[in-house]
Every structure is written in structure tokens, then in C-alpha cells.
Simulated assay, not measured.
Amino acid sequence: MHALPLSDLAHVLTSLPAPCQLRLQRDDDDDFAAALYRSTRDDLRQMPAEPAVIEQLIAMQQRMQSHGYRQAYPHAAYLVLQHGDTPIGRLILDRQGEVLHLVDIAILPAAQGQGAGSAVLRGLQAQAGAQQCRIHLAVNKSNTAARALYQRLGFRLRGENEVQEQLEWKAP
């Protein structure tokens, strides 16, 4: 494995609709990362428990996810998707040989459906195609909107378990 230089993401960076941009995640993005993670965990917020307990559980799950990603993908690029100066999402990418692994992509609910996620994915596809790479990702089966987007963009099923589908895209 090797680190994924930001220069390898040129197609992604140039494909974003103005005023969206990607930048490397910084230490001062921790609060945003926590808020973004919380926004993806409606499943936990629906549990029959005290709100404080649920918030502790969400924080614990975020720490476990972050630790797991850093263990499994030590050379991954952590990127923040911004609309102007406002962070709206995050992307974690890892390149392993001929596979560009989209470890995680998350966009705040208020920013979804506005084209930024599609543009990021199309940019990744352009980059992967130019480098003759495949893109791998996993998506929760319950995330019907993301699954539909991936299908529209040509991702195909390469495996599944009870919770997730593993998808692949390769240039035609």
C-alpha cells in the first residue's frame, strides 16, 4: 500500500460543481466529523434509551469506526467536501494496487441531493479510468438512496452479506 497523493485526485477536484471543493481533513475538523457521523446514525437515535446514553453510544461508535479505518487503511486520504467555506461531507480514499477503495463517503442530510456526491463519484470514476483502476465500496442495504446512485453510475454488485453490498466500478 502507498499513500494516495492529493495530486492523484485531480479529476475529482476539477469535476466538482462550483463552489464545492475538496481539501485534506485537518485536526480542527474533529467537531464537524463528529456532527457528520451523528447525522448518519438515525438508527441509534431511535433506540429506546435516554438521549445522553444514545449520544455516548454514537460517540463510542464514531471512535470505533475511526480507529477501524485507520487500522485497516493506514495510508488513506481523509478529505473534507466543502460548499464554499462550509464543510458538507467527508471522503476517505485508499489506493491498493489497481483498486481505488472508497472507504467512506458521507454528506450532511441538508446538503444531499444537490449534486456534490454525484460529482465526487464521477470524478473518482474519471480518475480510476485514467489510471486503469477499479473502484470498490460497500453500502448498507438500508441506504436505498446511495444504492440507487451507485447503480445509476454503473457500480455493480461483487458480493454481499446481511447488512452490506460490496460494489465495484470499472471503466467500460
Results as ranks from 00 to 15, higher is better:
Gly97Ala: 12
Ile105Lys: 12
Ile107Glu: 00
Gln112Asn: 06
Leu121Cys: 03
Ala119Gln: 09
His75Ala: 15
Leu100His: 03
Leu153Asn: 03
Val53Gln: 14
Gln114Leu: 14
Glu98Gln: 12
His75Lys: 12
Pro48Ser: 14
Val120Arg: 01
Ile88Val: 15
Asp42His: 11
Gln46Gly: 13
Gly68Ser: 11
Asp43Phe: 00
Ala72Tyr: 08
Val99Gln: 11
Val53His: 13
Asp42Phe: 09
Arg147Pro: 00
Ile88Arg: 02
Gln132Val: 10
His67Ser: 11
Glu55Phe: 06
Ala111Gln: 12
Ala148Thr: 12
His101Trp: 08
Val120Asp: 02
Thr144Asp: 06
Arg41Lys: 09
Ala77Met: 05
Leu124Phe: 00
Cys133Leu: 14
Arg90Asp: 02
Leu93Lys: 01
Ile88Cys: 06
Tyr69Cys: 07
Gln112Met: 13
Leu44His: 07
Ile54Leu: 08
Ile107Val: 15
Leu57Glu: 04
Ile105Trp: 03
Leu79Lys: 00
Pro48His: 15
Leu91Thr: 06
Lys141Ala: 01
Ala130Lys: 07
Ile58Trp: 02
Asp43Thr: 01
His83Glu: 15
Tyr78Gly: 06
Gln71Thr: 12
Gly123His: 03
His136Glu: 10
Ala148Met: 05
Pro51Met: 05
Gly113Trp: 07
Thr86Met: 13
Pro109Val: 07
Asp85Met: 11
Ala59Phe: 07
Leu121Phe: 02
Gln132Glu: 14
Ala116Arg: 09
Leu100Cys: 05
Val53Tyr: 09
Ile105Gly: 01
Ala119Gly: 13
Leu57Tyr: 02
Pro48Tyr: 13
Thr86Cys: 10
Arg134Ile: 08
Val99Ser: 11
Gly154Val: 00
